[in-house]
Amino acid sequence: MTRQFLGTAALAFLTMASAAQARDQIRIVGSSTVYPFSTAVAEQFGKTSGFKAPIVESTGTGGGFKLFCAGADENSPDVTNASRRVKQSEVDACAANGVKDITEVVIGFDGIVIVNAKAGPSYVLTREDIYRATAKTVPVGGKLVANPYTKWNQIDAKLPAEDIVVYGPASNHGTRDAFIELIMDPACEKQPEVAALAGDEKKKTCQSVREDGAYVEVSENYTVILQKMISQPHAVGVLTFSYVDQNADKIKAATVDGVVATYENIATSKYPVSRPLFFYVKKSHVGVIPGIREYIAEFTSEKAWGKSGYLAEKGLIAMPDAERKAEAAKAKDLVNLKL
């Protein structure tokens, strides 16, 4: 009766599921920083190419590589976005699962910006200030000690007399890797006390973020950081440029090493804290899943990633003309990744 009908219906669903195996839609995973750009391309591609719009999941850079490298079969994603370069360990994991041929495409730059609310004080920082505010151990008077700073003016008398509160990305985040690589490492390795340390010890000292509550980890969701900024005007946040661009009426960017984070300054590499963004394509899926070549072509077209393309409007910082041309040619020929 009713129950029999329900059972049959459930079975019917399951059979439908197994029948719909062959995939006709590109699947993309990876970085939440690249997500706004990747989805914009996916949507445009779906509207104009005649293929279905790709499915884009925001899994974080590391999570993206994990899914991407899980296998070469159709159930695995075709493209993964990354806000840092792929690591050797990830390439090895890919190869172990039969994912051998990968094409790397650099799509443009992203600035890492230190911001606070418009109502708060203006910060004029150097990378060393930021390092001293956020590291777990800092050199004071020739010795490495647990971070003693609680107010900005203890680091440099010119800075405001405000409590140090930094909202930044959590350790699973590509932006955190870039924060460490571009701000912490360069400032830290300049310290004579640190330079004396051995390789591993040095790395650990430079890359450990304080855990006494002054650095607050916020995972995945940037909007949370934005709201914290507004409720605590003296707190600073570590955000990517596209957020600052879209919320210029609420937050302002601190200058880092004397340079303001603007589109021009990041594009011309004057601003010290910018990084390239990537996506990686599984070559064995090209030609099997329809539309991958066309998707790459859309992403690397001038109307998308060009200086006045629609990705620039979303906050992506375009590469110089020659680099764009070279990168587009590489993407078109699906050149293999070389680390």
Binding site: F13, M16, S38, A42, E43, A53, I55, V56, E57, S58
Partner: peptide, 12 residues
């Protein structure tokens, strides 16, 4: 948790 443009036609 994904960006999906097309309105799904079937449960798969």
């Amino acid at each position: 948790v994904a960006f999906v443009v097309n309105v799904p036609a079937t449960p798969v």
